[in-house]
Amino acid sequence: MLHVIIPTLNAAPALSRLLPTLQQAPVSRIWVSDGGSADDTVAVAARHAARLLTGPAGRGPQLITGAEAALAAGADWLLFLHADSLLPVAWPALLTGHCRAFPDQAAAFALRFDDPHPLATVIATAATLRSRWLGLPWGDQGLLISAALYRAIGGYRPLPLMEDVDLVRRIGRRRLRILPAALTTGADRYRRDGWIRRPLKNAALLLRYALGTDPQTLAERYRR
């Protein structure tokens, strides 16, 4: 059984686009792990028969809450998605094929942004190449992982930032595939912060994390 886990915080418009696309095999159950939304996120989740989980805001803790619920309900595979994700058309076959052929490996998608800006393609291509070469996809590329592997590596940790990098580093490059199709993700932060400034800021945060900077310090910097 494949369960989808989506952390949310005031994500109603994006969630209303994503959830209808997941109402098909191989998805058995959808979990929306909400961090206290003040918009219509809860109503959108209910309208599309997603299981709602609530708790304090924070992507790491929200992902943990969703994963624990999915595992308790008997999930064999977990698919973690951001609310502003849109999967490629052929995603059911891609995921089913991966689960059958690579049961001991996790997988993430290549990346695409929902913006025609010329730098969007450059940045997305660079992110996909980083993922292939270093085994370091971001959370906005989705993550498909078996329940067995998730448990074996200890799952997500309750970090305020870099929870995605922390997890894929423990998976390791040899146990991580990049699927041959792109997931489309929202580009709001890039439009807000700039198509040059945002990726430079992300790269600086990743470098500081790799050098041992505390994730709480990085989270405070990320929000500025």
Rank of each mutant, 00 (worst) to 15 (best):
W195A: 06
G139T: 05
P160M: 08
H117E: 15
D104C: 11
R157E: 09
G135R: 08
T184D: 04
L134S: 04
D76C: 04
R151W: 01
A69C: 08
T217K: 12
A45T: 06
H3S: 15
A70H: 08
Q105W: 08
G154T: 04
G172N: 15
L81W: 01
A11I: 00
G172P: 15
T184G: 01
R59Q: 12
R192W: 03
I30R: 06
P180T: 00
D34G: 12
P199L: 09
L53N: 10
A11T: 04
E68H: 13
A101I: 01
L79G: 02
I153L: 08
A187F: 02
V168I: 12
P180V: 00
R177K: 12
L167F: 11
I171H: 07
R221T: 14
V44W: 01
R100W: 15
S33T: 01
R47S: 11
L63H: 10
R224S: 12
W138Q: 05
Q23A: 09
L63G: 04
A50F: 10
T96A: 13
L205Y: 01
P199H: 07
Q141V: 08
A43Y: 02
R132E: 11
A181W: 03
R177S: 13
A106E: 05
R29L: 05
L205V: 09
P160N: 06
G66E: 09
I64Q: 13
A14M: 10
W133N: 14
D39Y: 02
P180R: 01
D39L: 05
V27N: 10
T185F: 00
P13R: 10
I5H: 09
L206V: 04
H48N: 07
D188I: 00
N10W: 00
R197W: 10
A108V: 01
R112A: 12
A124R: 03
A101Q: 04
R157L: 07
V4Y: 07
A152Q: 11
V4R: 07
I145S: 12
E163V: 03
A12Q: 09
L205G: 04
G139V: 07
R59W: 05
W133G: 13
G172Q: 15
P158W: 10
E163N: 02
I5G: 13
P13N: 13
E68Y: 10
L119W: 05
R175Q: 05
A57V: 10
W31M: 02
H117D: 15
P199T: 07
M162N: 03
T21Q: 12
P92S: 03
G35H: 07
S85A: 11
L18F: 06
A70R: 10
G135T: 07
R173P: 14
S85W: 03
H117R: 15
L53W: 06
L18W: 03
I123Q: 14
G97H: 12
R197Q: 13
W31L: 04
I171L: 08
P118H: 08
T54D: 13
E163A: 01
R170I: 03
E220Q: 14
C99W: 05
I5V: 14
R173Q: 14
Q23H: 09
L52F: 15
G36T: 03
L200A: 10
R100H: 15
L183D: 05
L218H: 04
P20G: 07
G142D: 03
L176R: 01
A73S: 09
L78V: 09
N202T: 11
A75R: 04
Q216A: 15
L111K: 13
R198I: 01
D214C: 12
L218V: 02
A126W: 11
L15W: 09
G154K: 03
V27F: 03
